[in-house]
């Protein structure tokens, strides 16, 4: 059985969970077994509807301790469910919660972990999972031989597929230990699309000259319903918040569309964004290295091009 961890925030199932559910169902098909889900804590949405991603059964452990994320408590409970249900593969998203829990579950169950997987395993001869290494500059094929195997799937690496189907929601009675961590506040940057989940990202660099000029970047992002990102010097100079810094030493992202404005395309920047499916570069320097990594480009002044692009997009989207 393939057990898929369904990650929830404030009672809502995260988008990354739809990806791992689809992935888990496909993997189960490949291994001629079934995919089942596990969800911890209370959820306001109808869980049975997640059956449309291909899972037949969802175990829910309802206990108010689980309404706050604690990697230690979560690990304990996931391990209980995995052992009781005989899970052979456990799938997580390699998102913020997955990064905290998957390694713990791996250590607890002595189950080999591939974090940041980018596709289904090759099971023709063993169990080999492809993952990104060197911050996206290369990939590695990792072989797992442990009895239980853990995969944490890179966000945005696997396409969500919906079919028809409904999952049976089964309450699971687990022993829930008390939590040693206490969440005192959650600060959401309201109205924004989370960077790691965004399908479109609009990113800008030092070419914008100063934080006061970000209006045109924000307008473009708004028109595209995109998340905002920036290069490292922009975050270091506090023009933009740290959580927008993408690249080798920032956040690694793989959106469908990445629009880079006034960013030179240094190797450390490219490392974190080169898995984007389509890259658009707007830069006034025709020699900017970013053009070599781009699919579309405009050699021009961002201050002129960006507002025009925003208008063009509004027009084309409005017309549809």
């Amino acid at each position: 059985m393939v057990l898929v961890f369904i990650d929830v925030a404030e009672g809502h199932v995260k988008k990354a969970s739809f990806e791992v559910l689809t992935y888990g169902a496909k993997l189960a098909e490949q291994l001629s077994t079934t995919a089942e889900g596990i969800v911890l804590g209370s959820v306001t949405e109808d869980l049975s509807a997640l059956g449309k991603y291909g899972v037949k059964k969802i175990y829910q452990v309802n206990n108010e301790t689980l309404d706050h994320f604690d990697s230690q408590v979560y690990t304990n409970v996931i391990a209980q469910v995995a052992q009781a249900t005989g899970a052979r593969v456990i799938v997580f998203s390699n998102n913020v919660d997955g990064k905290a829990v998957a390694p713990r579950v791996s250590a607890r169950l002595k189950a080999g972990l591939v974090s940041g997987a980018v596709g289904l395993p090759d099971t023709s001869n063993g169990f080999v999972v492809k993952k990104n290494v060197f911050s996206g500059k290369a990939f590695a094929n990792i072989s797992l031989t442990t009895e239980i195997k853990i995969i944490s799937l890179s966000p945005n690496a696997y396409k969500i597929e919906e079919t028809v189907g409904s999952a049976e929601v089964v309450p699971f009675n687990a022993n829930v230990p008390s939590s040693k961590t206490k969440v005192t506040a959650v600060n959401k940057v309201s109205g924004e699309v989370p960077l790691t989940e965004a399908e479109i990202v609009v990113s800008a660099g030092r070419g914008m000259k100063g934080p006061e000029n970000w209006g045109i970047v924000e307008d473009l992002a708004h028109a595209l319903h995109a998340a905002l990102a920036c290069s490292r010097p922009v975050a270091d100079a506090h023009w933009r918040p740290h959580n927008e810094h993408v690249g080798q030493t920032g956040i690694a992202i793989a959106p469908n569309l990445y629009i880079a404005i006034g960013i030179s395309g240094a190797i450390q920047h490219l490392a974190g964004v080169n898995r984007s499916k389509v890259i658009v570069v707007i830069n006034k320097d025709p020699e900017a290295p970013f053009f070599k990594a781009a699919d579309y480009g405009i050699v021009g002044d961002a201050f002129e091009v960006v507002p025009k692009l925003t208008e063009a997009i509004k027009k084309i989207r409005g017309a549809a």
Binding site: V186, N187, V189, V193, T196
Partner: peptide, 9 residues
């Protein structure tokens, strides 16, 4: 966390 931060003790 996605789109923000969580503070814990």
């Amino acid at each position: 966390i996605e789109g923000g931060e969580e503070i814990c003790e």
